[in-house]
């Protein structure tokens, strides 16, 4: 039982405060059992570093990304506009997300609908906190462990952020062993474009199996990602190959937290 204390925007507003950041948790981070652990790891890091933030809690809603990618522009814009209304009402200026899909939508698609914020993916924030010395990883927490990194499409190719998550791992003194297809050549985990919510079409194999195989060929101890959707898919892939005892699938936030708590 962890004793997390997280304030909501509403609570702070009652105290007459506006935090520096809104941490947008996202649907995965709020409801998915695995992703909730990532959410908590990230919150612990923010608190350790003394970052001034709050969440929306029950006032948060879906960013609309899966609706938009599935072609339901109506639903997307309805979601976007009501989210923007909530955020603007609280005077939000800076938003952090742990989800590259929320990140992309806020950063690139909300401005045209009236939602103009400084948007950060947690990889950017963590990188900054390590650089500023606010988070200090232990000397060599992952010695002798092979770690590879899977680029989330919406962070990497989609937004050109290949180095930010890698720098977080470097901050944790990790030398990444790259898969043959990485950065702009990275293969999708199979979840994007609302695929997460439906069965695949006729196929030879699942995309997550295909991608995980490439990672497993490196015999890694840890497959790192920076997206809860990727995490789920790669975890399924690891299970498919019965490797869940040997291989951990972790978010960069979890890795950094471990390196600090060591």
């Amino acid at each position: 039982m962890s004793e997390l204390q997280v304030k909501t925007m509403a609570e702070l507003a009652q105290e007459g405060k506006i935090p520096e950041y809104l941490y947008w948790v996202g649907c995965m981070g709020s409801y998915d059992d695995r992703a909730k652990k990532i959410t908590k790891a990230f919150v612990k890091l923010l608190q350790k570093a003394g970052v001034d933030f709050a969440v929306l809690g029950p006032e948060e809603s879906c960013s609309g990304d899966p609706a938009k990618r599935a072609g339901n522009e109506f639903l997307f814009q309805m979601q976007a506009m009501s989210n923007i209304e909530v955020m603007n009402a609280y005077g939000v200026k800076k938003v952090i997300t742990t989800c590259p899909h929320c990140f992309n939508t806020f950063k690139n698609e909300y401005p045209g609908l009236g939602g103009k914020y400084e948007v950060y993916h947690h990889s950017e924030i963590l990188k900054k906190l390590v650089e500023e010395g606010k988070l200090q990883p232990a000397d060599n927490p992952f010695e002798n462990q092979t770690v590879t990194f899977h680029d989330p499409c919406y962070l990497g190719r989609g937004n050109g952020m290949y180095d930010e998550p890698r720098n977080v791992l470097k901050g944790a003194r990790i030398q990444i062993k790259e898969m043959p297809n990485h950065k702009e050549n990275a293969v999708c985990c199979g979840a994007g474009g609302a695929q997460m919510f439906k069965e695949a079409e006729n196929q030879r194999e699942e995309i997550f199996v295909f991608r995980t195989r490439e990672a497993l060929e490196l015999n890694p101890d840890i497959i790192a990602t920076a997206c809860a959707f990727c995490n789920t898919m790669i975890t399924d892939g690891v299970k498919h190959y019965n490797k869940e005892k040997e291989v951990q699938v972790l978010d960069i936030a979890e890795i950094l937290l471990r390196s600090i708590e060591k």
């Binding site: 409801y31 959410t39 929306l56 809690g57 609309g64 899966p66 309805m78 609302a194 919510f197």
Partner: peptide
């Protein structure tokens, strides 16, 4: 189904919006 869920409870699954902070 995913669309309906987002419309009704603000998430692609059938979870209640009130439970968004349960992870804490």
């Amino acid at each position: 189904l995913m669309f309906t869920n987002i419309e009704n409870n603000g998430a692609p699954w059938q979870y209640s919006q009130a439970d968004r902070l349960n992870w804490v």
